[in-house]
Design a protein around this nucleic acid. Structure first.
Lengths: 342, 342
DNA sequence: CTGAAAGCGCTTACAG
DNA sequence: CTGAAAGCGCTTACAG
């Protein structure tokens, strides 16, 4: 706006320092008379303190960044939203960025966040850029790094993950309990921790039931939505045919729904479906979709809490790791319409 | 990180100014030898230019803000994502904030964005805070304001809206063409432009067909999702019963799906449904849902283009207003399963 | 092609 | 309770 602290000081007839003390409510007292004159001058001029200049002096920006793969994914959107709300409570703002699963873009954003001197950084890592991250996340100096969703064991950083193994195992066990013996896995890339761990949960459930692990039923997908449908198409053509599918993400589930529609199949009679990651619509679709719910809100809040502990010095110990629990919602896509408890 | 331009200058054996000229590639030439020494020193020290300090001097932050009602709404998420991507192209970062439909929270964010000196601000306004916005959006000084989704005629600002009237009219006309005579409207708050305009489109379609406008069939909702289901419940109890519903938002549509599920109704036989705002799942549900698609991506990009024009001085004229066109996707929730063209 | 220096708008120790 | 002043890390006109 062009109006600075000095303008306010001049109009109020005090020193610039006094204006600062009024604006910041401290750290030293200001007489009631001077305060009143300053506040009146601020009002009259429409003065807005320059947060950028303040940051330069204080060496804190009161801001955090979050880099996620895709804010259109409702799960990640809820993580970002929760982080946003939680940070707001603590007086921080949030810079949201999309890596789009691209390591190059991730690196660009990492550099950007560093140049903007964010106090904290929440990262859903692509898995690359390890050397850069190691330098960035050195202890003591900002930004304070918290990893979410995907583990990077080589990095000394607080991490919040999902209980991928538990959730996948529970979903597949549920399918087995219903009598399914040929259960296909629609997986995320196995080399990343969510993909690998959901695959592991799938295998554990089969093994526990004494069922064979058939490589022909295991499909490894990418994050690209369009590929899902084609992959499901191949999956449905396997013989003997699978009677159930466990989809490792809501994106992959969409591919299943798409093929079911195109082929005019019925759930669960022709094929049963269970999904990792619940979406609002799953509950109100017909048939409703059985899904493992993992709270993006809980994950986002936890990440901010970890950040906050470090930033305030409330915690200074070794890296922490926490897993957000899952909840299995059994619905009509596995149970059938008649038995539904809606 | 603590390492500053002066550290680099010292190690490279040049003046601090020369470091700046290398980092910024100008505005004056640097000898190849000096450049090489500077680059080596930057690499060795891990120097990261301090964007905050730079902003203070240049008076530009190369950042923009967006304040939307709710980033969990897939439509608004796509707007934010598109704005993010478009700004990225132009070297800007984006600060995302949620007003949650709260004027107080909106005001807080407006002040925050101003104090952070964002160059541009994209706002989906709650409708309040007009005096503050008027001062904020004075011509010439930052932040440059662009309104989205909701008009505020009293404000001199570029605005990007949806073709609410056209989209609603097309959907209701489609229902009329199928023979429906009692069509209920599930509306957004009428006093805001999207709610009012979608209501107007509904009325226009009825009038054009010579049908009466029955106040008993018009429901005015809020943005709270939970209320939708209860409102739909009342709607379905109107006698004579409506044979079709036009839902003015994806949130409201969820309430319809919920009641349809609870009451075990069939679409479109018991009740037909058309929705303003398409959601990915609508296409793959059974029955698939007829919806008016409005591109959040187009809206986000257009908002950024408006911003960019102003920021670069490419446009300096009077406020502009643009409406994003709609597209009606006719699906099974109105057409029936047999006739579907999937 | 290069350096010394002013200044962006603040905070806060120093001195009264 | 208050003011004058140093300094945060940069950019860029000024002078050579």
């Amino acid at each position: 706006m062009g109006v600075t602290r000095d303008d306010v000081a001049r109009l109020a007839g005090v020193s610039p320092a006094t204006v600062s003390y009024v604006v910041n409510n401290g750290p030293r007292p200001v007489s009631a008379a001077a305060r009143a004159r300053v506040l009146a001058a601020i009002e009259e001029l429409g003065y807005s303190p320059h947060a950028i200049a303040r940051s330069l002096k204080t060496q804190r920006t009161e801001s955090a960044g979050i880099i996620i793969a895709d804010m259109l994914n409702p799960y990640l959107a809820s993580v970002a939203q929760a982080a946003h709300d939680e940070l707001l409570q603590q007086g921080y703002s949030l810079l949201v960025a999309n890596s789009s699963e691209s390591p190059a873009r991730e690196l660009m954003w990492l550099k950007f966040m560093r140049s903007r001197r964010v106090d904290g950084l929440i990262l859903e890592p692509t898995g690359d850029n390890l050397p850069f991250l190691k330098r960035l996340a050195g202890p003591g100096h900002p930004p304070q790094l918290v990893l979410i969703d995907r583990a990077i064991p080589e990095l000394e950083a607080d991490t919040v993950l999902l209980d991928n193994v538990g959730g996948a195992r529970a979903a597949v066990r549920h399918l087995i309990d219903l009598g399914h013996r040929r259960i296909a896995l629609l997986g995320l890339p196995h080399e990343m921790s969510p993909g690998g761990e959901r695959l592991e949960g799938y295998k554990l459930a089969l093994r526990a039931a004494g069922l064979p692990i058939d490589a022909a039923l295991i499909f490894e997908g990418t994050f690209v939505a369009d590929e899902a449908s084609e992959m499901v198409s191949r999956l449905l053509n396997v013989r003997p045919a699978p009677t159930a599918v466990f989809a490792s993400s809501n994106r992959l589930a969409r591919g299943v729904l798409q093929q079911i529609k195109v082929r005019r199949l019925r759930m669960p009679d022709d094929i049963a479906l269970a999904v990792f990651d619940d979406v609002d619509y799953f509950e109100w679709m017909t048939p409703s979709i059985t899904a493992v719910e993992v709270s993006g809100v809980a994950l986002g809040q936890q990440a901010v809490d970890y950040l906050h502990d470090r930033l305030t010095g409330a915690y200074g110990g070794p890296p922490r790791l926490l897993r957000i629990p899952y909840r299995l919602h059994v619905r009509e896509s596995t149970l059938g319409m008649g038995e539904s408890a809606v």
